[in-house]
Design a binder for these strands. Structure first.
Lengths: 304, 304
DNA sequence: TTTCGTTACGTTAGTCGTAAAGATT
DNA sequence: AATCTTTACGACTAACGTAACGAAA
């Protein structure tokens, strides 16, 4: 009972003519004959009553058709649905991002993506630090724009889309506020705020746990949103390294952004579950790659 | 989406382990890997999230399983039903016969058949001449015990089970009644009764339409049952050739059976629709063949 | 180091189309 | 004679297992 035999049986049961069946299936007439014969051999009884003038279903063949036709249809439907979800660039793609600033980038890439693939709707989902791991693991978003390198073995990431130096957000009254630059080493002199809900591992990837010289970098209050973080900074409760674009998008009188000399650069890339990779994701990643190839870092002024 | 791929997918979705899946399907682990990969390639997305330590369904894989599992089950059920109807010797076999005398033979063969195939019920259906063509053509019986050679191109027949000479049933007051024998030539001197509902072709096969010398053999009144035929004979309304065993089983004072010198012998065999041939039929034919090989003609006294 | 999934490769079996044959009207 | 199904045969593909390899704990 192979797929080809079933398809041949169903087609012949409908056409009742070997020639037309062969044409419909794009195979030779000989193959139709052989496939039917093989199925009949497997069943142990003729399925068609045929002469060179007439082709008709036997009672057993008729019963088999009634049973198999809907089941096979259902099978094809299920398969088609899986293909649409996997290969087809249609349906819905859920793109997560972190912070309102990058929303602009995601929006512009989505615009390009929508032009290329009009059948695929894009849902933009702003997420908090706490959800970074949860969202991807829990199948709440398909792809996430992050500046954190691969942090889990079952995740894949696209190429670096754009890179930014780190700046340190400090209170306007903080001693650092008057300096031209700070280094990682300086982080040991204050407390670094901590995004709430992040695993220790992820937190360490965002901000090192020790300075290059080996001094521990202490963690301070937790926060859930960017705004909350900035409020804590303004109140002098600690410092936090952010990508440079934040100095443009999140300017506040009580917060100063000081360039970091040796902070890890923020390398933005798309991240998705390896096991959940689909054509939609590949297409979105391609659109993002192509977008930055033309426009460069969309969050910072073009460099001369 | 081949059968093997579907089975592998379903088995792996249930086992979540390549080794056990391979064992269950009696294939190598390599084949499981390749089949799954091929299906994933066709779908365009991973169906399993797997490492050397863990195998889990992806959302797309999970959805595909939900869709495919019941459909495939239904497909197998339909196929199994066809196999049971065709290859399996189980279910019901409807055996038709003509005249109560041969019922004894059919009964004894059924007895043997039942011993060989306890899962198959046998239904005995006595039929009238009128139904011979209709019963077989209309799927009312599966196999029929007849003494008429192949009369339709889409019918098959087994070997001759037993053979009997023809005798002519005549009225006890008929001139033939005192003769030791009659010939086909004599049939032109009276009217031959005609089974009702028989096609001309079938009627001609039962009783020739002309004598060897070319004189027409006229047909008389019609009858539907053997008893009716005998009543007409007794009343002197005509004659009718019957197999010799009728002289033993249907003896009546007003009817005399005269041996025919050149009548076609009655060659009893099983007949069935070629397109409806099943293992049940083959098995019943085999039982009948074996029965007569041991017992000879069960309707006549054993010859010395 | 063990367990488990993947890749490589050579053998084997089966698929397929062309063309000739057989059957039916 | 024309139409339609079946059989024969040769080229080719892919299915399969063994064994080596790679990754994970």
């Amino acid at each position: 009972m192979e797929r080809r035999e079933i398809e041949t049986f169903l087609a012949l049961a409908e056409e009742l003519h070997f020639g037309r069946t062969a044409e419909r299936l794009h195979v030779s007439v000989a193959m139709v004959s052989k496939s039917v014969k093989k199925l009949e051999r497997a069943v142990g009884a003729p399925l068609f009553d045929r002469s060179s003038r007439r082709v008709a279903l036997t009672p057993i063949g008729s019963r088999l058709y009634e049973d198999v036709q809907p089941a096979y249809r259902q099978l094809l439907d299920g398969f088609a649905r899986a293909v649409a979800a996997g290969r087809g660039v249609e349906g819905v793609l859920r793109v997560g991002f972190l912070g309102t600033a990058v929303a602009r980038f995601v929006l512009e890439v989505s615009e390009e993506f929508r032009i290329r693939h009009p059948d695929c709707r894009v849902e933009l989902i702003e997420t908090s630090y706490a959800d970074v791991a949860g969202l991807l693991g829990g199948d709440a978003v398909d792809v996430l724009l992050l500046a954190i390198p691969d942090f889990a073995p079952d995740l894949s990431s696209g190429p670096v889309l754009f890179s930014e130096p780190a700046v340190l957000a400090v209170s306007a009254r903080h001693p650092f506020a008057r300096r031209d630059a700070v280094s990682l080493e300086d982080l040991a002199r204050d407390k670094v705020l901590r995004p709430r809900g992040l695993t220790d591992e992820l937190d360490a990837l965002t901000v090192p746990v020790a300075t290059p010289a080996g001094r521990p970098i202490e963690r301070g209050d937790g926060f859930s949103t960017i705004q909350e973080m900035l409020a804590l900074i303004g109140a002098g409760r600690g410092v936090f390294p952010v990508p440079k674009h934040a100095s443009l998008y999140d300017a506040r009188p009580d917060v100063v952004y000081v360039p970091m000399t040796d902070g890890l650069p923020y390398e933005w890339r798309l991240i998705w579950r390896t096991a959940g990779e689909t054509n939609r994701i590949r297409a979105f990643a391609a659109a993002a790659r192509d977008f930055v190839a033309v426009n460069g870092n969309p969050l910072l002024p073009a460099e001369e």
